[in-house]
Nucleic acid binder design. Structure first.
Lengths: 216, 216, 216, 216
DNA sequence: CATGAATGAGTTTTCATTCAT
DNA sequence: TATGAATGAAAACTCATTCAT
């Protein structure tokens, strides 16, 4: 693959069109359910060029997953995670930001979500590659982003740092689920419509910080 | 479909063999990636019988999804969720139980997880059926199971019941993720190997109950 | 086949049900298009018995063709053809009779009509058998039936007997076509509705007898 | 269908090879009895291209029926029917011509003959299409062709024009039957071998014109 | 280099025929 | 002997991949 990358000159515009449409197709039909011919058609590109550029469907898929991540990472502004003393505000900002991202790049999210599941399906040699690639992204990052904020907080002695991080990941997942559900019910929703979810996010942080039991 | 069901007598043993192996294949290769011939082979049954029993691949898939759910639901013993005064103990038990289930029925879990994603792909008429089926299961239940336990606890006035439930769902998801990751690293693990995860679960509950900030 | 005929005792009632329904199915779907399972179902008989009685589908078909002919021949009353001095009246009677028959046994007619065409299709060894069987029926007979009536008429010296017979066969075919067309337009028609066609028949005979040119 | 026709470019030479061989196969084995693989093989073309071009077997069949008609119609020279004052000579010419055609395009004739019968069998949506297509051809034309010649003849007052036309159709059918029978007995026959049949044709016309009864 | 028509291995699906009960 | 569930060979159809233009 790396070999081909260097040997074959690629038209950046075609690359973009292919990636965009591959993303769309893979997001909607999964790996096996997507037909290369459809991607080529929608991208206004010949089937031949896809195979010349990517070698085969499996590599096209991998490239698409990479593209999706790069795409999201490129626009992701990590300052929203870090520029905050207050954990609740930070999570609220992050949630807001993630929703914005998801509203703007739904296909990227879908493909990224599927990728890991598909792994077991894709032609054997790619399994590892995709799995490893996927592992770099996601959870690891979130933990890292939360870390500096935690440093500034006074934490109970009987609570491990990791537990907090994990719980916050679970919380993020839960927020993600709520977001997804909301988006399905209101496909045309804009950011302001998600205020409720963001309020929830703040509540969640408050609970995590102070617990939900009455102090006796 | 229901019409055919009554017309065609089915050998329960063959049904079992077909379902078991369909489950296995669908779990490992997805809908498109699974070949009916393989299922037939592994089930020691002729290709013909699968079409006799299920009409076509799409209906076989649907039947498999139904089978997976029925199977899990049949063995799921919800009392482990409810017979507990202590929330930490309850979650620990639930986690333990869920791990046991997942260790015992990994394919069922996989297929169930995929089903919803595959829906968009499956022959149109099945979409609705699968979607509806999927909706019945999942989150709704967990909330209901947690509810009675929350009733017995003294909850802070500034915290909504729903927030707690949602956070606990996020927590369960997180535990699920940890479990999955662990199972992938140690495919042969048995229940006792998951003690760490169960300890985590208890910690999470403690944090949720008392918060992680030092009382100032 | 003859071997089987003697060895296997057959339940006459089942034979009838099989033949009746085979007739129906073959008439509507042709040889290849007919499924033995359907015949068995409609005849309230097991598939097994059909193969026990007839050996295979091809022989079942042959038997059905024979059955159709026998059936029609059994009810056909040839006296209507012969008990007439007047050729016009005879053809009118014959037409009337044939229509009655065709109204009553449409499937038999259809199968008989198809049989010859199917011959080229049916498993090789049967070809000859069907062809020969078919040859016995049809035209040969009609010629024979017309013969005695012609004997009583004074025929022009420059006209061969055979030509007359052939033309009359063509005429019968034409009447048959008109009948068929009429039946397709009016599926519920009864004999009296065919008066026009019978009038045509008489006209045809008149023309054949006296020609259509003005005597100069 | 028309949509696909424009989207998929077709190699005229391959079309020809496919049509020719489809014609041959369908003529000899009927719709159900014909295997697309065989057509592909004989046409020196891949199976895939047939489905690319025609979508499925049913449409291939329809295309073949159309092809057969177009083919025959293209070479049919209707002047032989019209450029004649003498009815006998006209029918003789027409017969001669039809025999030539049938000798040259036996498969086309066979398929065309079968098509109507198969109609009831073919996948539902095609029924209408085939039926309508077939109706255009056949008898209607013959009547029209005979009409102008009849105009020039002095016809008896008690004879309807339609009766004459119908009788002549019957006569043509009869000649057709004789031709078919002869061709089956002598598969290698050339046009001159059919002189007897043509003589018959003339006789038939004479009889129709002057009747076969002695003028008393 | 790019194209997209053609290929054919691989899948799904059908149905005459068998054979355990 | 009768049954009809099961079989699997044979047919229809799909689609990633190639290669002549």
């Amino acid at each position: 693959m790396t070999e081909k990358d260097t040997k074959i000159p690629k038209d950046p515009e075609k690359i973009t069109r292919i990636m965009t449409n591959a993303l769309d197709e893979f997001a909607h039909h999964g790996y096996r359910g997507t037909k290369t011919a459809n991607i080529a058609d929608k991208a206004a590109v010949s089937k031949g060029i896809i195979f010349r550029y990517y070698g085969n469907k499996a590599h096209l898929y991998l490239a698409t997953v990479k593209y999706a991540t790069d795409h999201i990472m490129a626009v992701a502004d990590y300052r929203v995670w870090q520029d905050s003393q207050d954990l609740g505000e930070m999570i609220a900002n992050a949630t807001k930001y993630k929703i914005q991202l998801q509203l703007k790049y739904p296909e990227e999210f879908k493909v990224l979500l599927d990728a890991y599941a598909e792994v077991g399906d894709a032609p054997a040699p790619l399994k590892h590659e995709i799995a490893q690639f996927y592992a770099q992204q996601t959870s690891g990052n979130i933990k890292a982003l939360i870390a500096p904020v935690l440093d500034r907080l006074a934490i109970r002695d009987d609570v491990s740092r990791e537990s907090i991080q994990n719980l916050m990941m679970g919380m993020m997942t839960q927020i993600g689920a709520e977001t997804k559900a909301f988006m399905q019910k209101h496909p045309q929703a804009s950011l302001t419509d998600f205020d409720t979810i963001i309020k929830h996010a703040k509540q969640y942080v408050t609970i995590l910080e102070h617990g939900f039991l009455k102090k006796s």
